[in-house]
Amino acid sequence: MSPGRLLALAVLVALAAAPFVPMGGMRQYVLHVVIQIFIWSFIGQAWSLMGRFGLVSLGHGAFLGVGAYTTTLLWNFYGLTPWLGVVAAVLLAMLLAFVVAYPCSRFGITGHYFALVTLAVGEVIRLLLIAERDWTGGSLGVTLRAPGSDASLLAIQYADKRVFYYGGLALWLAGLWVWARVDRSMARSAMEAIGEDETAAASVGIHVTRFKLGITMLSAGLTAIGGVAYAQYIAYVNPETLAGIGVSLRIVFAVVLGGMYVLLGPTVGTALTIALSEYLRVVFGVKFIGMAETIYGLLLVIFIIFLPAGIYGSVAALLRRRRVPAAAPA
């Protein structure tokens, strides 16, 4: 077994055992933070599937919102289990992605213009959620209808955080698996080619529209799953936390910070941003409203200028460079 695999296995074992390690009175809090890291990392991975090919979306909140509200409303109004609701959520998010991405691809809306279109879509979904208050509770949001007991598989609601911890872990691993699958496929080469030069890509037989739609719908579907997971965990949905510019930019920031071209980039970035925001929350409390956002924004600017490959991406590239001379003589 290679050292890398051994390390990965050790990390997995540690993660699996973590909920049973004694942590004094901090266990609930630590679990809460780690669960959020799992879920938002998964969402970051979904975003980076598009972002790494130059399809920068500033409106992924739209897919989160569609996902989270679909399962929540189906459960609250019709009692449909989120296990089935998530299927509807994914299909709806993919439909929305299609409706947005098809005209963009067809009429050559790329780069900054594509980013602006997605930005608008994120806001439209947020405003729709606020406007349809009879259903969605407007800007106050909706609480998931509680099941009869403390632990309900049907409703995916559990008082014990450990259930969500393992669920989140599984989700995160699944996200890594999808990312690695895409990364190793020939489709990645095709997407890179499209991202660089659509005309040249088409000339070697690559169906540009099909690929762009495919990756966008995949990303949207996974993001919707992330939204459902978050809604089930928090048991409350709200247009500000699950749609619109704020959350959309937070996803982008985390991924850019960690590095969108490497497997663990979104995870590292998400862990850092969540740790940062928790730290700032503890330090500033409610004293300086907006301070956390200001520091976020400042860091984002610094990172885009000085570390465009992200923290993890830059470290990984550095390690690779140091390893190459050692391996070269063979």
Partner: peptide, 11 residues
């Protein structure tokens, strides 16, 4: 990869 992607999707 430049050539392989053409070989894979070109037909």
């Amino acid at each position: 990869e430049n050539v392989a992607v053409a070989a894979h999707y070109g037909t």
